[in-house]
Design a protein around this nucleic acid. Structure first.
Lengths: 216, 216
DNA sequence: CAGAAGTTGAGGAACATCCTCCGCTTCGGC
DNA sequence: GCCGAAGCGGAGGATGTTCCTCAACTTCTG
């Protein structure tokens, strides 16, 4: 599956793993805004080593988060298995938010799912979420004027808040997620939300919500 | 009322006004993150002039936004005058969000209302908002487990989104504001939101939501 | 017209990235 | 063990940003 070019020397392999672990920690608190220099220091390794192993931040991010994102796929599958579609959806969002609140890097990764790195995971994930929503729509519990594209936006808002409150009230975001979930229920008397968004819109907005991975 | 120390020379006064106007423009797009150097250039004036007239960013911000915030007080008064408390509240939030979406500086100012500069405006504003909410609670339309402190947070989320989508879909935020408003209605079957937040919490979170005005 | 008030903007100080480079260390096949 | 290849470190150059001062100059106004 993986195209393993050359087996690394043993020490190099050890360092690679150290770097990934350190990157996970550093990204968890600073998100994609973290620096490769930062990662190097946390890994107890020279900057050059990091740059040699991961020439771009993108490649490091990919190495760190593809698995974490696959974990979220599992979460989505569990949501589909719940007997109540609504409860499945709510649970999924709550757990996802919890993970994202605890790991800002994962949050940034999840919101970058349409970006070239991670497209693969996106192709697993998005159809599952679509199914979750279809089921909830069919059940009549999720308001019909919402769709797939609303959820990245909602998660972006909620997890941004989670970040901003993490120092003083790490659970604060849950309150507002709950509020939004009540707003998402299909109910008589709901307001008119207007037209749904396009995929391009979401992608553009998500790019603004996540620090750029530029480098160079 | 205002402690006018010395009458400025006429050209100086003209420059002062130019600076304020330019600052308004610059803050409108970059928020408090804008630079005094930026403002100077937009005003067609040397940096030194800005620093002489407004030694701190804080003082400039105050000069620019106190009036704009007082405008929002008017908005709040209109909300209180509406016959339906709920409609008044909704209108108020929608209009406030519109203003904040169009002027990120105003948004940053509004979210800084507890900060020393602006406390004065805050003392006008907050009791009014409290009254709006009391009325809506009494009317039974606003869910009872919400309060004053929820609104800065909600506005912060919504206007942050407005900012992030301003380039591609400037009205996007309205959709999610509407969604949240539906979540704010008192309704049977609403979820449990848990305990309300304290004022300290809100202040701490707001400080994270707005770029620091440090200087020096 | 004198001198007070005001202006200017180059530029120094203080950061923050990003990433390269080359002398040195370590590995591991022989 | 030896030695060449692989790997490592981290100082430091390049670049960028922001803040703010100051000394030479200009413009008011009485």
């Amino acid at each position: 599956m993986t195209i393993e070019a050359k087996p690394l020397r043993r020490d190099a392999q050890r360092n690679r793993e150290r770097i990934i672990a350190a990157a996970h920690e550093v990204f968890a608190t600073r998100g994609f805004a973290a620096t490769l220099d930062d990662v190097a220091h946390h890994a107890g390794v020279g900057v050059g080593t990091v740059y040699r192993r991961f020439p771009t931040k993108e490649s490091l991010v990919e190495a760190v988060f593809t698995d974490r994102l696959e974990d979220m796929v599992t979460l989505a599958e569990e949501a589909l298995a719940a007997e109540s579609a609504w409860d499945g959806l709510v649970d999924f969002l709550r757990r996802a938010a919890r993970l994202h609140a605890a790991d800002r890097g994962l949050r940034d990764a999840a919101l970058s799912m349409n970006e070239k790195h991670f497209t693969q995971v996106g192709e697993h994930m998005l159809p599952l979420i679509q199914q979750i929503l279809d089921r909830a729509h069919a059940e009549g519990t999720l308001r019909p004027d919402t769709g797939l594209h609303d959820f990245p936006i909602i998660m972006a808002m909620v997890t941004e808040l989670a970040q901003n409150s993490s120092a003083c009230r790490p659970q604060l975001y849950e309150r507002y997620l709950t509020l939004i979930l009540d707003g998402l229920r299909a109910r008589p008397g709901n307001s008119d939300l207007g037209p749904q968004l396009s995929e391009q819109d979401v992608q553009a907005v998500m790019r603004e919500c996540v620090p750029p991975l530029k480098s160079r």
